[in-house]
Structure formats: C-alpha cells, structure tokens
Amino acid sequence: MNICIYSSYAWIKIANNYGSILQYFALQTYLEKQGHQVYWLRFKSEEKVTLKYKIANLLLKRKDRNRTYKHQNPKDFQEFENKYLHETPYEYTSYSQLKNNPPKADAYITGSDQVWAGLSAERYLAFAPKGTKTLSYAASFGSPKQGFLNKILFTWRLKNIDYISVREKVGIDYCKTFGRNDAVYVCDPSLLLEKRDYEKFINNKKNIRKPYIFSYWVNPIQSLEHISWTKITNYANKTKLDIVITAIQGAEFSFNKEKIISPNPLEWLQLIHDAQYVITSSFHGVAFSIVMKVPFLVIPQKGNSSAENLRFYDLLDNLGLTERIYDHSKPIDLQLEKSINWNEVESKINVLKEVSFNFLKKSLTK
C-alpha cells in the first residue's frame, strides 16, 4: 500500500527538533517493514497571515504560533532527510496546491507530534481524495482546548478522519468531546522500533568520549535555577562525568554558546545510546532514553511550555516510571542513580506496542 504521511516537515525546516524528525523516521521504518511504500508530505505553507487567521486567533485566545527559531544545523538535518527519509517529490507551499493536486496514495496518515495543535485543513487530511483511507497515528492536541467555538471546529475537522489514534490519554477525552468515541491510545512512533533497529544506523560510529551526562533541553528556560543546573553540575563534578549539552528552540540562550553542541539526528541518537545518564526536559529525550535503556531524569518545563509536560507524564505513568520525574526537594544523585527494572518496563511497552500494531494493521487493511 502507498501511504502518505503528514507530520512535522514544516517544523524541522525552522527548528532542529530531533524528536520531530526521528519520530517520522521511526514510523516510516516500521511501516516499510510491514511491506508498505511510505513517503512524507512536504508541506510548508508560505501563505501570509490573513485577517481571518488573526480574528480566529483572537476568538480562540490562541497565542501567536509564528515564533521564529534559528535552525542551528540545517545542513546535517537536510543530509539526514535526503539519505533516510522518503518524501513527496513536490514541496507544497499552499493548501490550495495540496487540495487541487494531492500526492497519490492509498492511505493518508496524520501524526505524530502536535499535529492537532492547530485547525488548518491539512492537519486533518481534508485534501485526501474521496474513497481513500484517512487515519491519525499518535496525534496530539498539544495544549488543552476549551470553549464552544473550539468544540464546533474540532468536531468538524475530526469528521474527516476514518480511524483515530492519539498519543496522550487526555486525547481520548478530547475526541469524545468532539464527537469521536472510537479514538485509540497508542505509543509514539519512536517506541515502535527496538533498540537494535536504531543501532543499525549508529553502531558504526565509534564513541571516543569519556563517560558523560547527556543533557537535552527544549523551549525557553526561565532560569538555570529552574532546571537545578547547579545541582547537575555539582553531581557531574563529584562523579567525574562530563556534561554534553544540546539545547534548542530557545533553550540555547540559557547556556554558554561554546558549551552547546548541535549534532545531526543520528549523532543525537548516539549521544543518548552511549550516555551514562540523560537529563532532559523533552518528551523524545525521555522516549529515546527508554528505547536505549539509559537511566534518565526528566525535568518538567515551566511557563508557557509547561503544557508539554503532559506528554511524558502519560508515558511514564503507563510504564511505571514516574519516579524518573525530577523532584527538586530530593538529592539528584538518589533520583538519577535509582535502578530501573528494564525487563518490567519492556513488558509494559510491549503491551502498548501491541495495541499500536493492531491499530495500524486494522486501519490499513479494512
């Protein structure tokens, strides 16, 4: 079956988000292992912000989403994209182009990441020709949506999707509110693959670093005090561990520029794979630490980005790993060094994966 996936293409063109590009890579890889032909929809709207859009933002009380981020490593991201990702030959720059000449496919998938954090038509596959399958895989609504107008608009958009799956349990409740009682809770695409699947791409790289903590940060940090940076550095000094820092989407401004590295996507995976510990504020920092079976701590985000914490709360609760959420009142060494029963975690992941596999199989064969 030919499958076209709408995901985070536009986002990784402006921000070097490792989770966004690797979750697509994971979904593509999994579906190809099942015998499908998969390609990523290259959609990057260049339409100007219209008066209609501004009015909708005002009525829905949405904050401006058109923030500008500097992509720190566009060359290496593009090289990864060219080498490993299958894409539509044409890059669409407007919804009208997409609607009038959609890429040919037997099925269209929207997801993962926060594809439903907005209401634009392409996010809900409204361009798909009649008679083709449409489904969401691990779609996320992002921040909670409230209000009568939102309910009407989301109800209208979700009618276009034949089969719905979401990445957070709260997404099930949202879908019910929007008239869809058939939504299924599934795992993020990054968890569809095994550690050995990723090692095929990174094991040929030789690790020459001394033992280190990999710290990966996303979104603006109000202050280093909020992420207990002094405690982290003191622990690293005490245990003679280096600290390797990757910070993106505004987090980089909180650190000394010379201390930050901007690896390519596979190097980022390698850094998690080889780390003694991972300390992160990122959902995918957590997800890939789990895949690689590396002890980790996740430090919840604060301020405007705090709504993103829900993503890893769900996952860690489901896997019995809530103790890996950092508690500022406790010594960091006791939390970081606490052992993880990876066999137990893997058993719980397998249950969730089975639900996910079944959803994809049934949706794509009905």
Rank of each mutant, 00 (worst) to 15 (best):
I5P: 13
G19P: 02
L27E: 13
Y30A: 04
L41M: 13
K44A: 11
V49I: 15
V49M: 10
N57S: 05
D64W: 02
R67W: 05
N73T: 03
K83E: 10
Y84D: 07
E87C: 12
E91K: 08
T93Y: 07
S94H: 12
Y95T: 14
Y95N: 07
A105W: 03
D106N: 14
T110R: 01
A117H: 08
T132M: 04
T134N: 03
Y137P: 11
A138M: 07
K159Q: 13
D162W: 08
I172D: 12
T177H: 02
C187Y: 02
L192K: 07
R196W: 06
E199G: 03
N203Q: 10
N207G: 03
K210I: 14
S215Y: 07
S223D: 11
L224R: 06
T230M: 13
I232M: 03
I232R: 02
N234L: 08
T239W: 04
K240L: 13
I243V: 15
F253E: 13
E258I: 06
E258K: 15
K259L: 07
L266I: 09
E267M: 06
L271G: 11
I272L: 05
H273Y: 11
D274Q: 12
A275V: 08
Q276R: 00
S282C: 03
S289R: 03
S289Q: 12
L297T: 01
L297A: 02
N309Q: 10
N309M: 04
R311T: 01
L321N: 03
H328V: 08
Q335C: 07
Q335F: 12
E344H: 09
E354S: 14
F359R: 03
L364P: 12
